[in-house]
Nucleic acid binder design. Structure first.
Lengths: 337, 337
DNA sequence: CTGAAAGCGCTTACAG
DNA sequence: CTGAAAGCGCTTACAG
């Protein structure tokens, strides 16, 4: 790594400027010198120093991705992992490297890190405190939010259309003939859990309401809570002859399914179960879980291309971008023949 | 972000050198000027430019993590996601930012990217081609490998003790009384799948062998293959009265469980199932899956601390570090009362 | 205790 | 078509 542009220039018998021009491809160079220089670069395996380049161009060609989440899993979270899997190749194809950071304390420190690194832009994932946004806004770094929630009209954010997803779930279960449904609702401070529930309930409201809807609120949205609440409400569940469970995310649904399995309740024979998110978990459990899939792929790639527009100061961007959800019909809600 | 050290110096009425010394904390400064300078920095929200600092210190304080894998999921892969979740906070606590990159083509391009960024070190995850290693070795960047395989004695690599894990699995199933076991073995070119199988078989060999062992090889280690192979071999499986399935990873096991569920085979009542990896999938499916857990937490944090030693040229590091696996006994192998 | 100067490895006008 | 010079924002000896 000891070799720098000066070294290449000397070996090729030209000046640094010439080497620089040839590498960047802009500016003239006779094909003869170009070939000579390129040969030296190739042979010496010269790697231009991106740090020095960033210094002068005032562009690092790297972006920062911060996932705000209090608890593990973060990167291995079923939804955020997929988002990152979409972001990475999209960033690479536009020439950006990505700094990834998780922030469990939801603090400003992670942002500071990124700011010092002079990232060209920032993708903020998940729910983050208002003060983080206010802080980021003070600096002139481009940023956008994915899967978070904010009432700040300045913030560009990408979210899934959770309300419509909730409606789809309602229509699906109702269409299957379920008239007594147990709803397991994740934390309502979260935009997505809130809208999923709202959409689900609204669908019934708009059709004159339905008697048999029981909503149980969960303070967290993980497997353990789904399991605990299903177990605690088991007697009431039976008493009300519920024939279906709708949970506002897959992990809660999986927790509920565990209890059903342990009680030898046949899914979907006796009770149908639906989740939300479209994680891989829903696809590989047995019976496979019917769910409403969030379009993480498009959200991830769009986040990158939109950020790139911001960085390059090109074009006008919408403040809010909503992504349609898609219901995936699987075994857990299948009707018997 | 327009303010630089010069600006701070002017506002505080001192020289750049003084500001620099105060920020870095080394070098003298009267407490009076120190306070004044710090106040200006605070008020102006000055963020030192890490790029410029890297330029002169020849240290970027960032490391590169590359995950080599042909197919999605990569970051959302159950095992690699956990590894990254361990790496990120460990890196941060040592003052490193991390560039994350996935490389589906298993090419040299991802390495070049990192090299140009002048990362202080490289963590290479999963199985990578020999030419990548040979390439990295040419440069003087510190690196190490996690969960890969190599016969190159120079390469520091961190792996789980898969062979012992395979033995643990064998002992567990045998101890439960299973005498006819169907083994679903992932790609044998992968070190881990190979050793898991070897360990499993060796345990029986050393005890005089066992008749009822059927090994079926799978060219890939995902859910779909587990499912397909279990379905294809279903008749033979029944004919041999197999009472247990051991798969060399959780996804294969999950695929097999799907087939069993669809055939209304009770797990563990009629057939016990075991996986390997200790992914979250194994914990949340129903019945929960008995598995052998890889210590991703320690592998991830060790990878970072060891790389840091390499970067700082401190201490001698072992070439190979093996991490003990731990069997997690769950519902899928539970004996009936 | 503090400041002037050199230098890290590039790129970018500007001359020639 | 090519090179000399200035400058990006810092740190680090070296004087004073």
């Amino acid at each position: 790594m000891s070799l720098n542009i000066e070294g290449i220039a000397k070996l090729a018998g030209v000046s640094r400027s010439t080497v620089s021009r040839i590498i960047s491809g802009k500016g003239y160079a006779s094909s003869e010198t170009r070939e000579r220089v390129l040969a030296v670069i190739e042979q010496m395996q010269y790697k231009p120093n991106a740090v020095a380049r960033a210094m002068v161009s005032q562009r690092t060609n790297s972006i920062g991705v911060i996932v705000f989440r209090e608890r593990q899993p973060i990167v291995s979270h079923p939804l955020y992992g997929k988002l990152i899997d979409a972001i990475l190749p999209a960033a690479e194809s536009l020439g950006y490297s990505v700094f990834l950071q998780t922030d469990q304390e939801m603090s400003l420190r992670s942002t500071d890190f990124m700011l010092e690194k002079r990232v060209d832009g920032l993708i903020l994932i998940s729910r983050l405190r208002k003060n983080v946004i206010d802080y980021v806004k003070k600096f002139d770094v481009p940023y956008l939010m994915v899967n978070g929630s904010t009432d700040d009209p300045d913030v560009i954010h990408l979210v899934s259309d959770d309300e419509s997803g909730g409606r789809q779930a309602a229509a699906h279960l109702h269409g299957l003939g379920h008239r007594s449904i147990w709803v397991l609702a994740g934390p309502q401070e979260h935009r997505s859990h809130n809208l999923r529930l709202e959409g689900f309930l609204a669908w019934f409201e708009e059709r004159g309401g339905m008697e048999g809807l029981t909503v149980v609120h969960s303070p967290e949205s993980n497997f353990e809570l789904g399991r605990r609440l299903m177990a605690e409400h088991w007697e009431a569940f039976k008493r009300q002859d519920c024939t279906a469970v709708f949970a506002t995310n897959d992990m809660l649904a999986l927790g509920a399914m565990r209890v059903l399995a342990e009680r030898s309740v046949d899914v979907p024979g006796q009770v149908a179960v639906m989740g939300f998110d479209g994680t891989d978990y829903a696809a590989v459990c047995s019976p496979s879980l019917t769910t409403v899939q969030v379009d993480t792929q498009r959200m991830g790639t769009d986040a990158v291309t939109m950020l790139d527009c911001l960085v390059r100061r090109e074009g006008e961007l919408p403040r809010l971008k909503e992504y349609e959800c898609r219901l995936i019909d699987r075994q857990s809600t299948r009707r018997e023949e």
